[in-house]
Design a protein around this nucleic acid. Structure first.
Lengths: 304, 304
DNA sequence: AGGATTGATCAAGAAAAACTTATGGAGCCT
DNA sequence: AGGCTCCATAAGTTTTTCTTGATCAATCCT
């Protein structure tokens, strides 16, 4: 094959020729208009021919530009179509979602329910597994992950930056702590500690929460209850086993239903937001886009 | 248009799929094999699908890879064809060569003669003009320039790094200087000084030449002859008007024919080489390639 | 007209992408 | 086994691309 002209310049040319101005092309390409101007110039230098005539502040295709436009559009269209074809590879479209264990039950499940209401016939796989996973091998379409640092190269959408606050069952509070709004005198054994596992270290602890309150109490995990999953902390609290530092997004349904009560308005943000990752080519798939949209919107924006 | 996959990765994929190994593809693309490996991986990440299966040290296209290969090849072929089409724009192919004034007569002309011997029917325009010129506007196919710094973005071929040495007509030497091999006693008025014009400052002067000889004579230009073109210096010397610091490539024919004699084997290199520039898309044109090849080969490599 | 607006360009520095080098590992071939 | 070939990976460097902020030319609008 002969030496190819610079492909990104060809792309810029196609858009510029179609839209008629570099400025609009720049918007479509998501870059500055100066960048488009430079790319076009590259291409002109490559060919040794002007592709646009510049008259003051506007541009028109030259004869040469007109001559090559249709071919560029067709070739790029073909390449775009490649992406589309890749998506249909699996024949029947199954949406494969992968989440960390902790999010599966209390966060993803209710939202999936909403999605299935809108698309009753959608075939969905939900997989619970911890980071990092290999999306390619397992044919995962969408991965929910804690933090924005796994999976470089994939398209990322920030979902929610959650926070934790002390919650417990109403009966529990009635019995053990109703006279202690600051939790300062509560017995150590009544605190539920969440252990996020070996890979995560940024989860707020009780000490962090007390510090945020301006205090300095630091309940000793060896005395209280310990759970290995943040959703389990919520469940335990709901069952009256103690006071948990529960993630807001997970506790919300229980709070609204009165099965849990919040013991303070003071909360501590998690170290990282939850994020959705997907291969860029799959980001345009209708089902993927729908789920992401729903997760973004349904995720209550952090309220203090 | 939908969002395009990374085009350079597509290019790498096409070559890799066709050649069957990343190493060969790397050679074809003129990069390292690691670069190809990375580009392929980019594309796989983008699609979220493997395109090659790696078994130890070799690769095979996956089903997905097979599925998209023909489309990539076709699309890239189309784009390559765009370049070809641009070349035929002018219908009849005329080779337009542009040279600095000084090179036109004594350097380019004889070489063009050789070219026309091989291609008797080639239509050639020769234009003499000083740097910098606008190749695009004037539809110049090939520009010869002093220095490698004009015309960024164009393909460049180094032609010859010339040097200057003292030359004069045999009769002149007989009359004025035969007893003075070092030119140390020669009268100032007999030196021909070349003035390269306002844009160039690196041309060796008589002072430079004497310095290269280990001496320190510095003939005053205001006493000797001055010419505004290096080819004119040769011509003047040939006519017996004095001793010139002549460029070897220009003087060569006269030296071989005995119309000029070299007065020393000491020469001084020019500050820059002569280079040929052309729009990359035109570099593959048969006539351009032929002329460049001829200029490179016929250019005598600098001999001390 | 005159001033404001729009849109392309230019030059600089900043950011991102691509590439290279060096190293390690898996299969293949004597 | 031992040597080869070829791909994968990581770190660092180079090259390309992009942004920013300013300038300039044409048009538009009182």
């Amino acid at each position: 094959m002969e030496k190819l002209p610079p492909l990104n310049a060809i792309k810029a040319f196609e858009v510029a020729a179609r839209s008629g101005t570099f400025t609009l092309a720049a918007v479509e390409l998501g870059v500055s208009s100066a960048a488009v101007s430079q790319q076009i110039r590259n291409l002109e230098t490559w060919f040794g021919k002007q592709l646009f005539v510049r008259t003051g502040n506007r541009i028109t295709l030259t004869d040469a530009g007109h001559a090559i436009y249709p071919q560029t559009a067709r070739a790029l269209g073909d390449i775009a179509a490649i992406g589309q074809r890749m998506l249909e590879g699996g024949l029947r479209t199954r949406l494969v979602v992968s989440v960390p264990f902790s999010l599966a039950e209390l966060w993803l499940a209710p939202r999936l329910a909403a999605l299935l209401e809108a698309f009753p016939h959608m075939a969905i796989d939900v997989r619970a597994e911890d980071d990092p996973i290999d999306l390619m091998r397992q044919n995962v379409d969408l991965r929910i992950s804690y933090g924005d640092y796994h999976y470089p190269g994939l398209r990322m959408v920030r979902l929610v930056h959650d926070d934790v606050l002390p919650v417990c069952a109403p009966e529990f509070w009635h019995r053990h702590g109703s006279g202690d709004p600051g939790l300062t005198d509560l017995h150590e054994s009544l605190f539920i500690h969440t252990n996020w596992g070996p890979n995560y270290a940024s989860h707020p602890s009780w000490a962090d929460w007390f510090a945020a309150c301006g205090g300095s109490r630091s309940p000793d995990p060896s005395h209280g209850r310990r759970v290995g999953l943040s959703s389990l902390a919520i469940a335990s609290a709901r069952l009256g086993l103690g006071i948990a530092l529960g993630q807001r997004v997970m506790a919300q349904a229980d709070l609204e239903a009165g099965r849990l009560i919040a013991l303070s308005s003071v909360s501590v943000r998690l170290g990282h937001p939850y994020c959705a990752f997907m291969p860029p080519a799959k980001a345009d798939r209708a089902d993927v886009a729908a789920l992401v949209g729903l997760l973004v919107n349904a995720a209550p924006t952090t309220r203090g």
